[in-house]
């Protein structure tokens, strides 16, 4: 028999999946915009705002479910995790906007080597997809992979920072822009990793974070 709470949880899940779809698209658009030298900041800004509104709605629904049904155990963990995950998606939107803003701040960057952004961007988009799939299927093993993927993104970022300090490229502007974007991607990867930890929290009541 379906519980009254189950209907609320289903609604919450659908909202999270909507946010997942919107946020993964917006990150992709921001990265592609930068790589192709196209100003996408206006669109990304709107989507980012939409994610903020959706995050607020997720929190409101979560509060309502807690107030109405006093959930416990896996139900309570699920609701808490949805709030955290929604916040993660909202942050994706903000970082996507930050990425889109780089072109506005720095102007023409067509001379810059964008290979590392392209590669790291692909990795980060993959992480977003993995985190969403792990959430959807409550797949702890898949969620754990995010930590390893996050390490790769971290390494790429740190490697670039070191390289920029030790042997800067001819264009200081390029180094700065690349560093900023890598930093935003690295933060997105962190949030994808947190999502993975919350999948584990939902399933077994403990988080992967060590």
């Amino acid at each position: 028999m379906k519980r009254l709470l189950d209907e609320g949880l289903e609604k919450l899940t659908n909202m999270i999946l909507d946010m997942a779809s919107i946020s993964s698209k917006v990150v992709k658009i921001a990265i592609e915009g930068y790589v192709n030298g196209r100003d996408v900041s206006k669109d990304v800004f709107q989507t980012s705002n939409q994610l903020r509104i959706l995050e607020d709605e997720v929190v409101e629904l979560s509060m309502e479910l807690i107030a109405r049904y006093q959930p416990v155990a896996s139900d309570l963990r699920y609701i808490r995790s949805c709030m955290e995950i929604a916040y993660g998606f909202f942050r994706y939107g903000r970082y996507a906007y930050d990425i889109a803003q780089v072109l506005n701040m720095f102007g023409d960057l067509s001379e810059c080597n964008k290979e590392i952004i392209q590669q790291t961007g692909e990795k980060v988009c993959e992480m977003i997809n993995v985190s969403v799939a792990a959430f959807k299927n409550k797949d702890v093993e898949l969620a754990k992979k995010l930590k390893l993927m996050d390490d790769e993104v971290d390494r790429a970022y740190i490697r670039f920072v070191k390289q920029a300090i030790e042997s800067p490229s001819s264009g200081k502007k390029c180094d700065m822009a690349t560093m900023l974007i890598l930093r935003y991607l690295e933060r997105i990867a962190d949030h994808a990793t947190y999502m993975g930890e919350f999948v584990e929290y939902i399933v077994i009541g403990d988080r992967y974070r060590k």
Partner: peptide
């Protein structure tokens, strides 16, 4: 016990999945 019960029966009972 309320946040993360160890036993599956506890989980089922406290989440009200046992009504019938």
């Amino acid at each position: 016990v309320l946040k993360s019960p160890v036993n599956e029966l506890t989980e089922l009972f406290i989440t009200g999945r046992v009504l019938d």
